[in-house]
Amino acid sequence: MVNGKQKLFQIGLHVVFSAIVLMCLLPFVLLIMTSFTDETMILREGYSFFPSKFSLDAYAFLWNDKENIFRAYFTTIMVTLVGTFAGLSISSLLSYPMARKEMPMRKALAFFVFFTLLFNGGLVPTYFIYTQVFELKNTMMALIIPGLLTNGFFVLIMRTFFMNSIPVPIIESASIDGAGEFKIFFKIVLPLSLPILATIGLMQTIGYWNDWFNGLIYITDSKLFSLQNLLNRILLNAQFIQSNASSMNMSDISAGAKIPMETIRMAMAVIGVVPLLCAYPFFQKYFVKGLVIGAVKG
């Protein structure tokens, strides 16, 4: 009898979680379905999970506008690669010496890094420093630099890893054998630190990939838009597709085809989110690890 009760309990759990899973996923299904719906059906029936007429018009239209989309993808990929690599390099170089007892001025440095978590100047001065002092407005650097470390958070997590997981005797014996500090760092410490580098690198990659805020404030030239900025602009201003596209494909539009505005917007969002969702199962494990490290050890 106890067994039967337990089985019932398990079934109940699965029912609850099925509902939760549906709540998480259905909005994406709706998005994808609408992007494949015929525009006239949308105007008549609204967005629907079971559209009565399918159509690829939206994707056909976006294919004509592919240069913009490919350029945005290229910007996003470049920014993500360069930003993650540079960010990881800078933070590991900063956190490793902080983990070494021999480091001169170690306490002052730790405070210097830590204080950035407590207090920040906020948007206005940051904006003026990057636009007036460094003149980064409308450059790709504006998408990369503000996110390199953001603040000292990942640096402190890395320092903890270096202190706990790199045995001091290894460093000492290498030093006795005549290896210099740089050699020790690159040949011994970094290879031993691959797990933390991978985890933090993943979090940075996701951060750069999803970032739209820096583009919103620093980029006004649509040629430099990242994918998220393009999506952002289209979301807030549906006419943006029209104005952007009409300059490129006058012929298509004057040919009489009405622009399927509603479905194009949704198709654009699908193009923006589907690659990330497809990659998710492969990095899911490390993503969870990154979140837990950040919360518990931060």
Binding site: R100, N120, G122, L148, L149, T150
Partner: peptide, 28 residues
Amino acid sequence: YWPLLVMVIPGVVYLFINNYLPMFGLII
């Protein structure tokens, strides 16, 4: 230990620009 001091330079410069300069910038 000068190599250790050299290693931290990029990070220190970065935090100075990205985090500390804006703090002083609050005077505006």
